[in-house]
Design a protein around this nucleic acid. Structure first.
Lengths: 199, 199
DNA sequence: AGCGGGGTTGCGGATAACCACAATTGTTCA
DNA sequence: TGAACAATTGTGGTTATCCGCAACCCCGCT
């Protein structure tokens, strides 16, 4: 899925205006008339950003935001809020929304924020330095050790790993110990945490 | 450490100008005259953003950027680039830099981008939806189970956990099993991955 | 030939995890 | 007051992990 601005608003006039606006600024976009409609099309790998009306018939923008959060969405969300909805939008920002824009909005400002949200999304997905913490140590591992490690991280028993690789359990144990040593961890749990880009 | 704009530039005039600029806009900032100097003060928990001159005597901004990446920094980086350095800066953005600004820069624009970078940093650290994948299941856990889980994630043995909580090992085992069941995982490794915001 | 590194294996024992079965408190809520 | 739930513990047994000690094979390099 290519990065696009995903727009959810129940006001057709707004949808049309935004479609025109983004097209004129060469920003790819697509509109949905309701939270439910968007949810039906939502997939975890959507990229770009989400422009979301706070107040809508049916499921509100906030509710959608929360729901997407639960489902693991990381799409940056920009809320469109009427002047009365600002406290709501602020609360949303505190919960991790990317930004919010007051209605009526200034075209340039909105486009600017959408572009930034999309840049944000892109940079967060960049393979770059994010997970490089462990890569230095990872490079010390021999190929075979890497194979074993994969399976350790899959939560498999040594016995199973031995089976899959057609080697003795004892060998797996040896690899396991070396892996922990080289990666500077004491347990499989620590290893998983180290490699899950957490902190 | 409170969020501030961390500024690294080897030109004293620029440093002074930026200090003044941010102060006038009520954005906390601090300056360093070289990459090396900043590196000496760098800590993993710095918050805010990093404004970095691409070209400097000694270590360049790009080098510092790479180095920080290796050390696990997640501070969003805004590069200040002369017009000749733009290709470099663009490359940096592809590697995960947050933004770059051409010199000479427009004050408003720079402040705006710095604020966005800081918002980005703040929202990324927000307890919000990021790790909410698991939070639904996490809420099913009883307080006691949570206590046990913390210690499991610390890689401790059941025996040690039992000791710390002053309960029998058997009890820990029961909690452990329940935790795995409620969280829908089969091993401590999976649990760690689930809770490390990976995907 | 000698050396080192990577991969492999066996033995045996200490330690921990995992589990089914069974049971006892204390609290909250209908 | 009785059902439901959280927290607790025990017994006994199976299965895994973790390690020291010792060893063999293959390969590339000196």
């Amino acid at each position: 899925m290519n990065p696009i601005a995903h727009i959810v608003d129940d006001d057709e006039a707004i949808r049309d205006a935004l479609t025109w606006l983004f097209r004129s600024r060469h920003v790819a976009s697509r509109v949905w008339p309701s939270a439910e409609a968007f949810l039906a099309d939502w997939r975890e790998d959507l990229r770009g950003c989400l422009v979301l009306d706070v107040r809508m018939g049916g499921m509100s923008g906030l509710q959608l935001f929360d729901l997407l959060g639960e489902r693991g969405s990381r799409l940056p969300v920009i809320f469109l809020s009427g002047h009365g909805d600002i406290p709501l939008a602020v609360a949303a920002v505190k919960k991790g929304a990317f930004d919010f824009v007051e209605k009526p909005f200034n075209d340039n400002e909105l486009v600017d924020r959408v572009i930034r949200a999309m840049q944000f999304d892109a940079s967060r997905r960049a393979p770059g330095p994010i997970a490089t913490v462990a890569s230095a140590r990872l490079n010390q591992l021999t190929p075979r050790e890497r194979e074993v490690m994969e399976r350790i991280l899959a939560g498999k028993y040594n016995k199973v790993i031995a089976d899959e690789l057609n080697i003795a359990m004892r060998t797996v144990e040896v690899h396991r110990a070396r892996i922990f040593e080289k990666m500077g961890v004491k347990s499989a749990v620590e290893l998983a945490q180290l490699l899950s880009g957490n902190r």
